[in-house]
């Protein structure tokens, strides 16, 4: 897949997410609560990621460079592995910490899944950003 196609796909994904967010904002009749602002903030970050990586892909396309190379693949694999490892503990912490709140079983299950997924996603993004800035130079000690 060339850089322009990849950038186009990312911008389409961002566009779909923006449309869904706009639809939700327009259609929501009740006033926003704290958790709604939280969801909105998460959506903004999720929208920003494909836009940012789309711009990066376009920059590479302008210079005729490959947008995905062995370093980006290595970073992706390392970040995913670390996020998975950390997420196991995060799921456990969420599971036990919800016992301190007055939440019924069904909502507890929903909250565990929702918070766990979002947290794992953000851990992955943060680790990926870290490796993108620092590099992977000491793989033997990892």
């Amino acid at each position: 897949m060339n850089a322009k196609t990849m950038a186009t796909i990312k911008f389409i994904v961002a566009g779909i997410l923006i449309s869904i967010t706009a639809f939700w904002l327009i259609k929501s009749s009740k006033p926003f609560e704290l958790q709604d602002y939280g969801v909105l903030m998460v959506l903004m970050i999720v929208i920003a990621i494909p836009i940012y990586s789309g711009i990066q892909a376009l920059k590479n396309a302008r210079f005729g460079l490959n947008p995905v190379d062995e370093l980006s693949k290595t970073i992706h694999v390392h970040a995913a592995a670390k996020a998975f490892r950390i997420s196991i503990f995060v799921w456990l912490i969420i599971l036990f910490s919800l016992d301190f709140f007055n939440v019924d079983t069904v909502n507890k299950a929903r909250l565990v899944v929702a918070i766990g997924m979002v947290t794992t996603f953000f851990i992955y993004i943060l680790i990926r950003l870290y490796f993108s800035k620092v590099g992977i130079f000491d793989e033997d000690k990892d």
Partner: peptide, 23 residues
């Protein structure tokens, strides 16, 4: 950029290679 184009990687990869931050 020219080196990156010739070996088929991104410019960032060349930057990390030069700094010794990527094997």
């Amino acid at each position: 950029v020219e080196l990156a184009r010739r070996v088929g990687v991104r410019r960032e990869t060349i930057v990390f290679l030069e700094k010794g931050k990527y094997n």
